[in-house]
Simulated scan of single mutants.
Amino acid sequence: MDQEAIPKPKHEKHNQTQASSNETLLFPGLPNHLSQLCLAKINPSILFSVCHSWRRLIYSPSFTPFFSLYALLSPPPDHDPNSPIQFSSLDPISNKWTSLPSPPSDPPLHLLHRHPAYLSRKLPIQTLSVSGCLVLVAATTHKFTPALPRPLVFQPLSKQWSFGPPLPNPRRFCCAGTVGGKVYVASGMGTTYRGDVARSMEEWDMKGKEVSASWVKKAGLKDGRFSREAVEAIGYRGKLWMVNVKGNAIKEGAVYDVEKDTWLDMPQGMLGGWNGPTATSINDDDHHHDHDAMYVVDESKGVLSKYVDENDCWEVVMDSVVLREAEQVCAGRGRVCVVCANGTRIVVVDVVAPLPRIWVVEPPPMLEVVAVHILPRMCRLD
């Protein structure tokens, strides 16, 4: 009998649909929401290697995100200094750099890292990681004016940029930090120096149910000594800790108590060992701050140390020549990531291993690292 004359079963279309549906299931015969509960207990790096459907799952909005390394990148000194700053994320599973979506073009974003007349000096671009977001707080334009009249925020899970509320006094060379989902900006200068701005402090709450639409004025500093250069205000145990000079120079320390809205003196042991870029590993949801840890990298000796609050001293974690020339550091998820050697390498230290492990991450080709942050991975639909 001719094959075309063979009658087709009435349920064949149903079987094809069912087969197609089974191909999209994470586990055949099990609803996807139950499959996700099972797969959520497995390391994403394992799921990545098994099959395409599981690989798509770990980048989907419905799956708990793992964390990635985010970097601000600048062209090297021999390139056009007016080239735009770039933003990328390093996926720790695929080990690939991915560019972030472009920031809003209205108004145009002009962030100057090097000026043609001052190639030996880098101009700071001050960024924070706040409640899972990347926040740009302060920078300089090619006309030496503040580049950010309001913060620029990137949300990795939605891959969207947005603006924060306008700053009462846009700044550069300021103190910038975060505690408990709030952004703090203090001191600094605008186009020119003003004493009232150099002593002022502003707060923006990003973490409330409704994001605050304005900055709140807080207790000011006693003088303008913290406006000399960009200062990292380190959030640690409910306070902001900062020094006014980088490196091993003689410096002054200050501590801001967030709850009491008062300024305090920095403990002498902490101040004495603050000899390089510093960062804290903080859980934003931990209101008791029991898991906070503060790290500093001695930029001349290449020594990574951890602050011991009870003894007011710094405890050496490890030392390595690759940590020398440290410029910026971030910490989180058991890792300390250090930008070194004029942004030509990122050194990663596993500080929770019984014996700390260290390895080097190369930036994307023809780019130098300005700053790094540890944030949730971006979602992908492919």
Rank of each mutant, 00 (worst) to 15 (best):
L264C: 10
Q155G: 00
F173M: 09
D106C: 11
P364V: 07
M270G: 09
N82T: 15
L112E: 03
V336Y: 05
I6C: 04
S53Y: 06
K122G: 14
S49R: 15
I346Q: 03
Y256I: 12
A233C: 14
I42Q: 01
R228I: 13
A331K: 02
A139L: 04
L90I: 09
Y193S: 02
L355S: 12
H33K: 11
V308G: 00
A71N: 06
D290W: 13
Q126M: 15
G190N: 05
K251A: 13
P9E: 01
V153A: 02
R228Y: 08
A19F: 11
S131A: 11
E315D: 12
V352M: 11
T262V: 09
L39F: 15
W161F: 11
A198P: 04
W97H: 06
P76Y: 03
V347P: 06
G343N: 09
V179S: 07
S49Q: 15
F226W: 13
I374L: 15
L100N: 02
E229A: 15
I374W: 06
S99W: 09
V370I: 13
C174R: 01
R172S: 13
V308R: 10
I42V: 15
D2C: 09
S200C: 08
G224E: 03
P9W: 08
P101W: 07
D312W: 04
K222W: 05
P124N: 02
S131Q: 08
D285I: 11
P267Y: 09
G181V: 10
L367A: 07
P168D: 00
M1Q: 12
K209T: 12
I93R: 06
A40F: 03
C330F: 12
